[in-house]
């Protein structure tokens, strides 16, 4: 009976406890030099792209030429807002998921490796809640990383190029304000696109006590999936690869918006989050924590 009492006693402070735990997690994650360096690299990408396009088109010629390079790149010179889309399209295939993979892979394995995991477990939070907190932190990082790219791109775009009404890829015109709303929506969709990698990284993180191994495995899996997605003979597999619909965020720039691939993408991310999230839970709640 005493056991049941302690359980119900630990139920009482749950919301506050979880919140405190979450806040601590956020603070530790975002105070790490590693995290800041990752965000710094992400912020630098739009600067690079913007400067390159600016130099390339400095002589007055319109950029792009033939439509090579990342999506939307040919429109940047006419409207700086397009730099947001180009930067997201350029970072989404690799930089963003790699950053998420590093943070997610380190989430549990890093603590186990440095011996701090058992102290976390001493606190009466429970493993499930600790895991959820870890996942929530990684989700916040996904959003933060995407917003860093978007905001940096918007700043660089505003500095180097004119802003104003923009033409959607369907050829219709929308106001700058609506363009900003779409940019925000796109950033949210891009952040959501990373949830699958985040769950995968967290699962890998529960398998090992070495943070480096977990990060390397997650990033390795990411690259493998990207390569598989390029092999036409494996097209049957493609719709199930988490990265397959990533670039569908560009469908938000159509008029009217084409939802088919967007919903597929989000559905797939939820599925990955559910499968690997529950696998991480199954592993983490039953594993022996010795370090």
């Amino acid at each position: 009976m005493s056991r049941a009492e302690t359980v119900s006693a630990s139920v009482q402070p749950r919301p506050l406890w979880t919140l405190g735990l979450f806040r601590d997690e956020l603070r530790t994650t975002f105070r790490r030099w590693r995290t800041l360096a990752l965000l710094g690299v992400l912020a630098a990408v739009p600067v690079l792209v913007g400067t390159a396009v600016r130099i390339e088109t400095g002589d007055g010629s319109s950029g792009g030429g033939g439509g090579g390079g990342p999506a939307f790149v040919s429109q940047i010179t006419n409207n700086g807002l397009f730099l947001v889309f180009t930067a997201l399209a350029a970072t989404l295939p690799f930089f963003l998921p790699m950053a998420v993979g590093v943070v997610a892979g380190d989430a549990v394995a890093g603590e186990a490796g440095s011996g701090t995991l058992r102290y976390l477990l001493v606190a009466p939070a429970g493993r499930t809640r600790l895991l959820l907190t870890k996942y929530a932190t990684v989700m916040v990082f996904c959003l933060a990383a995407t917003l860093v790219v978007a905001v940096s791109a918007l700043a660089v775009g505003a500095l180097l190029f004119p802003l104003g009404d923009l033409t959607t890829i369907s050829g219709t015109r929308i106001t700058f304000g609506e363009g900003l709303v779409r940019a925000l929506l796109i950033a949210l969709v891009v952040a959501a696109s990373l949830l699958g990698v985040a769950a995968l990284g967290l699962f890998v993180s529960t398998l090992t006590d070495s943070g480096i191994a977990a990060m390397a495995t997650t990033v390795g899996l990411l690259i493998t999936v990207q390569i598989l997605d390029q092999i036409p003979q494996l097209h049957v597999l493609h719709p199930y690869l988490f990265s397959h619909h990533w670039l569908s965020f560009a469908d938000l720039m159509r008029e009217p918006v084409h939802w088919e691939d967007l919903t597929k993408n989000l559905g797939l991310q939820v599925l990955y989050a559910a499968v690997f999230g529950s696998a991480a839970w199954a592993r983490f709640t039953t594993r022996d924590v010795t370090a």
């Binding site: 319109s62 792009g64 030429g65 033939g66 439509g67 999506a71 939307f72 040919s74 429109q75 006419n78 399209a89 033409t167 890829i169 369907s170 050829g171 670039l247 560009a250 159509r254 084409h258």
Partner: peptide
Amino acid sequence: LENAAEYSLIHNGKDVWGYDSASN
């Protein structure tokens, strides 16, 4: 509809426009 781009052919009155968003 293409990947992150679109080719539109618009007929409006006496104008016929073709717009390729990939190459602008």
